[in-house]
């Protein structure tokens, strides 16, 4: 396919001479994603547990995380920039916000899916609520929670590219510089690597889930 600029999709000599830069972008992408998912899980677990335990708060919790989720990412970053500047903090606040809806929802759905008989049996055996949660309910909810973590991770990897506009971006900075210079090579590399990263993350999280929940292998 011909490009408007008449340039080839990829100039391999550019790739060869910029391996360091590509590596740095990839690393930054992974770090931004990992922080967002880690912090997102730490925040989502207490919120999810509370919303599950106190049914009445559910509607409000899901509606507010849902409303935040509807704000386009560029707009969310733009709303933060005047206060937190063109910083990693701005990126992370935005990225964490987007993971919350997915994670909280899957925590609630996962815990809801624990069969009543199992819960009754635990109560009958004298398990107190906290031990029941740790030994029984959370492990049984783990497959659904991990599904949420996978979706949140793949989503975040895509969103990180947009933080290039506020001076971060990881692989997105390659895409943006390709766009600005009208030079396809870095943007093709950036787009390809971010898709590859998403696929690798999805597959490894799936394997990780199978390892930690051997009972759910059917």
């Amino acid at each position: 396919m011909l490009l408007v600029s008449g340039e080839p999709w990829i100039r391999w000599n550019w790739v060869g001479s910029h391996l360091g830069r590509i590596w740095d972008a990839l690393l930054q992408h992974i770090v931004l994603t990992a922080i967002a998912i880690g912090v997102g899980i730490l925040i989502a677990i207490p919120i999810g547990l509370l919303a599950w335990r106190y049914r009445r708060s559910r509607g409000a919790v899901l509606a507010s995380t849902g409303a935040l989720y509807t704000i386009p990412s560029l707009a969310l970053f733009a709303l933060l920039v005047p206060f937190t500047g063109l910083t990693t903090l701005t990126s992370e606040i935005g990225l964490v916000t987007y993971t919350l809806l997915i994670l909280v929802r899957n925590i609630i759905v996962g815990l809801d899916g624990v069969p009543d008989e199992v819960r009754d049996a635990a109560v009958g055996m004298g398990y107190r609520p906290f031990r029941r949660l740790m030994a029984l309910e959370l492990p049984l909810a783990l497959p659904v929670i991990m599904a949420g973590v996978r979706i949140a991770t793949v989503t975040t990897i895509g969103l990180v590219t947009i933080t290039a506009l506020i001076g971060q971006g990881g692989l997105g900075s390659l895409i943006l510089s390709g766009l600005i210079q009208g030079f396809p090579t870095p943007l093709v590399i950036g787009a390809f690597l971010s898709v590859a990263l998403a696929v690798v993350a999805d597959v490894s999280l799936n394997l990780f889930q199978r390892l930690i929940t051997p009972w759910s292998r059917a």
């Binding site: 990897i157 895509g158 590219t161 997105g172 895409i175 766009l179 943007l187 787009a191 971010s194 998403a198």
Partner: peptide, 13 residues
């Protein structure tokens, strides 16, 4: 797979 492709990349390509 579509979810994994950043919309930013689709637009730029």
């Amino acid at each position: 797979v579509g979810r994994a492709i950043p919309s930013f990349a689709i637009l730029v390509i």
